[in-house]
Structures are given as C-alpha cells and as structure tokens.
Design a binder for these strands. Structure first.
Lengths: 149, 149
DNA sequence: CTAAACTGTAACATTTTTTATTACTAATTA
DNA sequence: TAATTAGTAATAAAAAATGTTACAGTTTAG
C-alpha cells in the first residue's frame, strides 16, 4: 500500500490531557538512557499506558526535533539534543497551547456589556499568567528535572 | 417533604471545568449591580448558560461567604463583600484546587525508578507554579477586573 | 391568602473529551 | 526471511463536563 495513504489527518487526533506529564515521563526515561533507542513498549511499561499513546506523543516530539526514532527490529526512540539544552518551557509549549484557567463553553451574550468582553479580558489575564509560568519553566532544564530521580 | 432529604451529596456533583470563568462572570455582573439581587435567570442570560449551572456556582460562592442570596419572588444573589476586598486569588482557590499541567491517568509502574517518583516530582513543580500564579492573582481585585468592562 | 417568581438541588440525559484497543503497513536487523 | 519495532488509521470505551427536567420550599406583591 502507498505510504501517502498513511498521512495523518491531525484533526482526527484527540488531545491528550495528560500530555505534559506523559511527555516529561518519556523524556526523563530517554535522558536516563541517552545512548539507547528505547521502545514504545518499554516506555509504556514504565507509565502503565498503551504504547500507541506513547508513540503519539513521540510523534509530537519528533515533529519538534527533540527526539529521533528508528523503525524496525531494535528500533525505538532517543534524544536528539542534550537534556541540558531542553527546558521545561519547550516541553510545556509543545504539549500545551497556553496555560489558562478555562473559558465557559458557550459564546456569551454579545448584547451584554460583560458577556461581550469577558473572554477577551480573561484572555489577557491568562496571557499574563502564561508569561510568568513560562519564565519559571525556562529556568528548569530536562537535565535538572531528570536528576531528581 | 422534609428539607433534610435535600441535603446535597457533594460527590454526586460533577465539576465544572469552566468554573473559574463562570464564577468570574457571575461576580463581575454582581459587581456591576452591587445593590440588586440578580436572578440566576438573568445571569445565565448574559452567559448563555443553563440557570441551574449558575445556581451551582452560586452555591459554591455562598459556601465561601462571598455572596448571599434570597429565595422567593424578587430573590436572587448579591455580593456580601466589597469587590475591592475580593482578590482573583480567592476566586481561583474556590474554583480550582491547584493549577497544574496534568498527570497521566494511570498509576505509573512502581518498579521503575522514574515511574515511582514522577508524580511526586511533578507535584513539586506544579506547587511552585501554583505559588507564582497565586502571587500574581492576589494583586488583582474583583474591582480591578470588573472595571475593565 | 394565594398566585407568581424565585432558589435549591436531585436525578438523569446528552455531549464532548480523553484514553484505550485493534489492526495493519512499512522498516530494520539478526 | 522471521521477528521486532515504529507509524497511524479507525473505532471503541470510559470519563468528564454540561445541560435538562422536575419539583419542593421561600418570599413577596397584590
């Protein structure tokens, strides 16, 4: 079968809300074994998670050139960069759009002065929060985080 | 019917993930009309939300002595405190346990050194984030937020 | 003193999101 | 060339969030 048929329609992929935690876990394992290609099965075993979900997160990491992976027997995934050159801010950004404290699901009433502006005002508040969190996460490298284990 | 039968078993209530946004919206409206009892119907109209959900959030605000409400005809809800005496930190705390970037759903493998400690290490990271966000939200009062409208 | 307009909240239904599974193609290596 | 591994589609299942209905109890206006 033609490989192009396999091209992923990204919109069919659901988000994974434990994305950040899962991605950190994967990267911590890769940091502990920087010279080995770790299989999704092995990684999934540490997380008690389905290997397919691990591979989805790895696909994301690959798209951001954080890891490389090798198909076939003895294949797996390894870091492309030094753990000391990866910050938690990068990992955060590749697993989250932004930190936010949520929006109401429905479009508020545009005829109400509050309804009309509430989402914009919340966005601005959240942008500030996001910036502060980003500054903090930028100071922590994957190496820092992994060395706690 | 005996009123005690109406006692709410909190565990049967689902969380509302737009809780913070909804609560802020409610409080902003109450701030705009500090002398009136606003009905859940009116508030829900500004949010395009079911009045029952508004009443659920109001129940939470009442439990924290932020608002009072009056049953019966011409009833509704009003602020118990000045908007300048309510910080966004308080609102955050009453709608969120903590800010966090998520945990994987399943218990990780306790036989893996990483699996064994990952949630604890994430918790510590999240606690730091939470503290920073809290400091920021403490500086903003409901009055500050509402005056943007 | 009664009808209307509210809140409170239970119970349940629906929708949306997240997570898990299965299945199969393709690649790699021993 | 068989075994092992990634890639990813498709679908199923589970969990979480949101919405609805219903009705008891409260208050007030008239």
């Amino acid at each position: 079968m033609d490989k192009t048929l396999y091209i992923c329609n990204i919109f069919y992929y659901s988000m994974i809300s434990g994305k950040f935690a899962i991605t950190i876990h994967i990267l911590t394992l890769l940091t502990k074994f920087p010279n080995d290609f770790l299989s999704s099965e092995f990684i999934a075993g540490s997380m008690n998670l389905n290997p397919v979900l691990v591979r989805k997160e790895i696909a994301n990491l690959k798209a951001h050139h954080i890891v490389e992976s090798k198909e076939g027997k003895n294949g797996g995934t390894k870091l492309l960069k030094e753990a000391s050159d990866i910050t938690l801010k990068e990992i955060f950004e590749l697993t989250f759009d932004n930190i936010n404290l949520g929006y109401a699901k429905n479009q508020p009433n545009p005829d109400c002065p509050v309804g009309k502006k509430v989402n914009q005002n919340l966005s601005e508040l959240y942008a500030d929060i996001n910036e502060k969190v980003g500054l903090q996460l930028k100071k922590i490298t994957l190496e820092d985080f992994s060395s706690q284990f």
